[in-house]
């Protein structure tokens, strides 16, 4: 069974004029098909306004489809009785590190989700410890979130989701507001988690470098999925990516540029070592 599955998913909202009258419908998501299997690492790419965040919000039933269906762990997100289960199954981490931390002490924030789920007190403590350990923030358990760096705050947010013991974590542009150090820190944490907990990870981002290790990449544009494939397949189509206002890792760009200048370099180079190897083979 798929962890997350969308079939003909459509999301429309009313467009209103200044007086509040409905003047038309806006289609934010258009016939989305998505299959994420348990344990997979799936990246959804797209520029701002491409619909990727709207899609993410469907995975947590913050939004429900106006057409088609979204299943999370086999549960239809439209079913109000499943709301709690859906939100517990697919934990969500948001973009702004400050605006998703509720607690005034790190450990209390991590405990917030389990508290809502009605988990018994001793079990909450175990889960909080476990969550904080999983993101490497255990030594900050008694700190105020305000004094942490952006990357650390995001790790706390991830721990808060882990403590709810979800099968799947949806990260909605978790690195967009971070500096390069913070970005690396968060991505490393996510990779660690995948290894240790075997959870399904869906990462929504506009940084291509973060997609290199993905099992599958979906590229969105105008509310549709316009490209789909492995990183190598996707990064081999540089011109198309540029057309969707995305950008390609510098190494891939350099490989593309060299090929354009007539050098025999394979498509879809992702890493520095691969490029160096390919160039050395030519000399």
């Amino acid at each position: 069974m798929e962890m997350i599955r969308a079939s003909e998913l459509v999301y429309e909202y009313e467009q209103r004029d200044d007086e509040g009258n409905v003047v038309g419908m806006n289609r934010a998501l258009d016939e989305i098909e998505l299959d994420v299997r348990p344990g997979q690492f799936v990246v959804i790419l797209g520029h701002n306004g491409s619909g990727k965040s709207t899609l993410a919000k469907h995975m947590n039933a913050i939004l429900v489809p106006t057409g088609g269906t979204m299943w999370v762990n086999g549960r239809d997100t439209k079913d109000p009785r499943e709301l709690m289960n859906v939100r517990q199954s697919a934990g969500m981490v948001f973009q702004n590190p400050d605006n998703q931390i509720i607690g005034t002490v790190v450990e209390e924030d991590v405990g917030f989700g389990p508290e809502n789920l009605g988990v018994p007190t001793e079990e909450i403590w175990r889960r909080v410890e476990d969550g904080l350990r999983a993101v490497g923030m255990i030594e900050y358990r008694a700190h105020s979130p305000n004094k942490l760096s952006g990357g650390q705050k995001q790790r706390v947010a991830i721990a808060g989701v882990i403590a709810m013991e979800p099968e799947c974590i949806v990260l909605d542009e978790p690195t967009a507001m971070l500096d390069p150090d913070g970005r690396k820190e968060v991505l490393r944490t996510v990779q660690e988690l995948r290894k240790r907990k075997n959870v399904t990870v869906i990462l929504i981002t506009h940084y291509m470098e973060e997609a290199i290790d993905a099992d599958a990449i979906y590229v969105m544009e105008g509310g549709r999925v316009v490209m789909q494939g492995t990183p190598r397949e996707i990064f081999g189509r540089v011109d198309e990516l540029k057309r969707y206002r995305l950008d390609v890792p510098q190494v891939t760009m350099l490989a593309e540029e060299l090929r354009r200048r007539g050098l025999d370099i394979p498509r879809g180079i992702l890493r520095r070592e691969e490029l160096v190897e390919a160039i050395c083979r030519l000399s």
Binding site: H47, N48, A176, M177, H206, Y207, M208, R245, L246, D247
Partner: peptide
């Protein structure tokens, strides 16, 4: 450029 996408 903080917070903007690559094209932005």
């Amino acid at each position: 450029t903080a917070g903007l996408d690559p094209a932005g």
